[in-house]
Amino acid sequence: MLLNLDPTERNLPGEALLSIRKWGGADTNLQLTIQRNQDQYYLQADGSWNSPPYGFIIDRLETHGDQQSVAVGPQVVDPLLAVNNATFMIQMQDADGHKEASVLRCARTLLGSSASGETVSPYAFGRLQAPPAPVAPEPPPAPEPEPAPEPVPIPETPVTPPAKPRSPLILIVLLILLALIAAGAYWWWSQRSPAPADPAPVTEPAAEPAAEPAAGPAAAAPAAPCDLTGFQAQNELAFVKACATSNTGTDALLETIAQAKAAGYCGVAQRLYANRGQAGDSRIALAYAREYDPKFHQANACFKEADPAIAVYWYEAVLDKDPDNALAKERLQELPK
């Protein structure tokens, strides 16, 4: 897939035409995300950049020969032009789950909406719109309160006067008699019962030594930032960010990319290529160019077809960091511009 952001025929400020070639999915009900390479942030509906991916909706692509296009407005044009020295990665996905990603190339003649000095492009958002916000369901009506029951009269009961308390002197005499009887009974019983023998000393059994805990398996070492073991698709962005910003060497990173391609993690492979290539790793950029170069291309699930235009882009990125790279020079002379 090859993506270009070009001026429209009228070339009004704030509007552009997103041109798409070699897209293999449907042309209706598409979702599109725009990510910049500086910090891996995504363009949001309000023009800001943040970490959660934000999907813009494309209702339909217009087809013109081998090229498809959709008009976009200031919602997309202005944030892209406001970022200096950045590369943008666009991923498109249709309703059937087919998705592809590629680098966006912006024309130098594009104008932001502020260039008009008066009004914004009448295209507004074109057909590239943010997904509608979900509408919260209305709460069910509160049930009407039931009427309170009428009070039932309580019949009056006659009050019985309390019994007259007994004289405290009688209670004291009774308590003294009970104490004397209990003391006499205890004396009589102690004279008849023999004294109990001393109990034999009880020897407590020796405590058995506590069994040493069985040695369990050694704690697993934390996974390396670029280790694909246990990778989950919903964590793709976090994995790519951690791997790309780690001190993993080029050879190890190329091995991770090869594993991602073999496992079908195409987003991981493409994002690692683009991130490290734009960050100045000329070997990664060279390997990415070879994925699209017809001379070196090998069809796989992530890079199904060669694309000379994309290969030229990455060979130029190689020469930006390594001006003496012989292979990049040779391929730029032979590939069509």
Rank of each mutant, 00 (worst) to 15 (best):
P139T: 15
P323Q: 03
G249K: 07
L61P: 01
P217W: 08
A211Q: 12
P196Y: 05
P13Y: 03
R166M: 14
A211G: 12
A179V: 14
N300F: 03
V76L: 15
A214P: 02
I284F: 00
R290G: 02
P141F: 06
T250W: 06
G216A: 08
K337W: 01
A218R: 11
A309K: 05
G47I: 07
A326V: 14
D251N: 07
P162V: 10
N300W: 02
A285Q: 00
V152L: 06
M89S: 15
P143S: 12
V77L: 02
L17Q: 03
D293R: 03
E118S: 15
A223R: 08
Y292K: 05
E208D: 12
D59W: 07
N11F: 03
R60L: 03
A185D: 06
Q67A: 10
A242E: 06
T119F: 14
S282N: 03
D293P: 01
P149F: 11
T8C: 05
C226G: 08
G55H: 08
L61N: 00
G55A: 14
P165L: 10
P147V: 15
G267M: 04
P145V: 15
M89D: 09
A274K: 01
K261A: 04
P155G: 05
A179R: 06
Y315C: 02
T256N: 00
A299H: 05
Q298N: 09
K304V: 15
Q44R: 12
A183M: 13
H64W: 03
K164A: 14
G249A: 07
